[in-house]
Design a protein around this nucleic acid. Structure first.
Length: 586
RNA sequence: GCGCUUGUAGCUCAGCCGGAUAGAGCAUCGGCCUUCUAAGCCGAGGGUCGCAGGUUCGAGUCCUGCCAAGCGUGCCA
């Protein structure tokens, strides 16, 4: 309908051009929007006001000429000029009714769009370090990222979801060392635990499993482990120096092969936990991309060579620098440290080169907002590699601040004091989790109140939407219990009986679903879909309270049942997209 | 200091490419269950859209400055 009106307006513009009112080479951008007030009809355009200046006429006069040039169409019953020069369209109610038929015929496909035209989009999200279980902060990225990916898919893009596994680097060495130290404890060794180690209970679990499967294979006497170590923080020393020395000690005492086995034991178990956790949360990936693989296949070397060949690398103070400041970054960045090790950033350059090589039309990275300072340097790297950095879109997600009632829950991975995503899911349930996480715009700070999300009362918005769905199901059950039969065909023939205020509102809202989905996808804003769901559910509940559906008149009854079935279908389509359950009874 | 993000009702937040009288939930107050599920509905009160300028037919929305909050500003990841 919207498209039809837009084309009518284009024809009208062409018409006034031939009248010489407007320069013939002027390109008019048609802006057509849904009206907020039914008095203004169904659609409105500000075209006359936009063209007033180039046409050198006052908007209302021009509007009259545009309306005069507008071709007649059976779907449009009335066109009005209002306010400063708005042109309001009133749509023939008969054509409004057809949305019910359309929804029921298309079923779960209703609302899907082809606007993406099969373009290949990669969405990388969560990508939390595999040094511990996912916590509630990662949960928001998971819910948001998968919703964005699913939305894009629904809009006709070809989507690849990817998790970048940071399985290299110092943090992983700290984890491996923490696992080993807890393992030694399990063997019966007595030794202090470093203040900078991973203290979480999950590390003990991993170590216990390792001890069960490997016995004392990795055991070394504690005296040997602790000999000549720099003091830890608790003893007035430097915790960073202490932990680095412990890592070195682990590597030398165990030897490369055994160290690698301990390392791998920690990595495997944590990664598996993350995979299970996300799967249970309804989040799936096409690919898990290992950072170590970039080292193993020399991707990092190749990436650095390409930067060097392009003249963007230089040496200074023993390190190798990338001249990112020449490409919009604040300052240059180190890619190879003076100790010869490449930085995390070097891996990331190689990773993005890999993404570019895979030929995606669009690369979407979903990062925690604390990484925003990182965007310019990655874009600089892409440019230096000769790529179009506008292919990369970084979407930032603010961390959710967790409250238990009024009390703010403090979190830190290292200390082990954090609420995990799994705990949250167990406490709140998957549906409420996903709903709450994507309810807000991603770059908004979010207060996640556990008490509110766990409450099974009316304070909880997810139930509101689910309840609307369950209510339609309940109506159909009632119909059956009354011994009556649904007659969809009869209902279709009498959709014109749906003239109540609430019915018109629902028809309009249903017809808005496809454009809402499209807009949510193109703007990467799943919260728009949530807003829509709440509005649709609200209108349905109002309708439910104002009118009886199962009336004696078979024609009206079936028309209404068709309408509420269409409502149920659209509710279900949007909720399934967001991986929220659609209960048939509550 | 500089950079990014945010600032809308008591609280949590929507507000589409700049559009007509700025919306919703919670909270408060008042109504609605003999009728398809009251996890619901109807109504009321509640606003200097952080502040000040600017752009224009029109600004919560765009621009500039200021104020406030969060984050960033590592040869950490």
């Amino acid at each position: 309908m919207k498209q039809k009106l837009e084309s009518l307006l284009q024809q009208a513009v062409a018409g006034i051009k031939t009248q010489g009112i407007l320069e013939s080479d002027f390109i008019a951008q048609i802006q057509l929007e849904r009206t907020k007030d039914p008095q203004h009809g169904d659609f409105a355009t500000n075209l006359a006001m936009l063209l007033a200046k180039p046409a050198k006429q006052n908007p209302r006069q021009l509007a009259e000429k545009i309306v005069a040039a507008l071709p007649a169409d059976p779907a449009v019953v009335k066109v009005e000029i209002a306010g400063p020069g708005f042109i309001n369209f009133f749509i023939n109610p008969d054509s409004q009714f057809q949305i019910v038929r359309q929804v029921l015929e298309q079923g779960s496909a209703f609302g899907l769009s082809r606007i993406g035209a099969g373009q290949r989009v990669q969405v990388e999200f969560v990508s939390a370090n595999p040094t511990g279980p996912l916590h509630v902060g990662h949960g928001r990225g998971a819910a948001y990222g998968s919703a964005v990916a699913d939305l894009l898919e629904a809009a006709g893009f070809s989507v690849e979801r990817e998790y970048y596994v940071n399985d290299a680097g110092r943090q992983m060495d700290i984890l491996a060392t923490s696992v080993w130290l807890r393992y030694l404890e399990a063997c019966g060794e007595v030794l202090p635990f470093p203040s900078n180690g991973y203290r979480g209970e999950y590390v003990r679990d991993i170590s216990a499993n390792l001890h069960r499967s490997a016995g004392d294979k990795y055991r070394k006497p504690s005296a040997q482990v602790l000999a000549d170590l720099p003091a830890d923080e608790a003893q007035g020393g430097d915790k960073e120096k202490h932990i680095d020395a412990l890592i070195e000690r682990a590597k030398t005492l165990l030897g490369p092969e055994a160290y690698e086995q301990v390392f791998q034991a920690g990595l495997d178990e944590i990664l598996q936990d993350i995979k299970d956790d996300l799967a249970e949360f309804g989040v799936g990936y096409q690919r898990w991309f290992s950072e170590r693989s970039l080292m193993d296949d020399q991707s990092i070397d190749r990436a650095l060579r390409r930067l060097d060949e392009a003249g963007f690398l230089y040496r200074q103070e023993g390190a190798t620098w990338f001249a990112s400041s020449r490409l919009g970054d604040e300052k240059d960045r180190v890619v190879v440290r003076d100790n010869g090790q490449t930085t995390y950033f070097a891996s990331d350059i190689a990773y993005h080169m890999n993404k570019l090589d895979r030929g995606f039309d669009k690369i979407i990275n979903i990062w925690g907002a604390d990484h925003h300072g990182y965007i310019p340097r990655v874009k600089a790297a892409m440019q230096a590699l000769g790529a179009d950095d506008s292919k990369l879109k970084v979407l930032l997600v603010q961390f959710a601040v967790l409250y238990r009632g009024d009390e703010k829950v403090q979190m830190s991975t290292r200390s082990g004091e954090f609420v995990t995503l799994r705990q949250l899911r167990n406490e709140v349930g998957k549906d409420a989790c996903r709903f709450f996480y994507v309810m807000r715009k991603s770059e908004q700070h979010m207060d996640f109140d556990l008490k509110l999300a766990t409450s099974k009362t009316n304070e909880n918005p997810v139930y509101y939407v689910q309840y609307a769905h369950a209510r339609v199901c309940s109506v159909l059950r009632q119909l059956d219990e009354k011994g009556r039969q649904r007659d969809p065909l009869l209902g279709m023939q009498h959709l014109h009986l749906l003239t109540e205020e609430q019915e018109s509102a629902l028809l309009t809202t249903l017809s808005r679903y496809p454009e809402t989905l499209e807009r949510a996808a193109l703007n990467y804003e799943p919260h728009q879909l949530i807003q829509y769901l709440r509005e649709l559910a609200n209108q349905f509940h109002s309708y439910y309270n104002a009118h009886q559906f199962l009336v004696d008149d078979d024609k009206l009854c079936n028309a209404r049942i068709n309408l509420v079935c269409a409502v149920r279908q659209v509710l279900a389509n949007a909720m399934s997209l967001l991986k929220i359950n659609t209960p048939e009874a509550m």
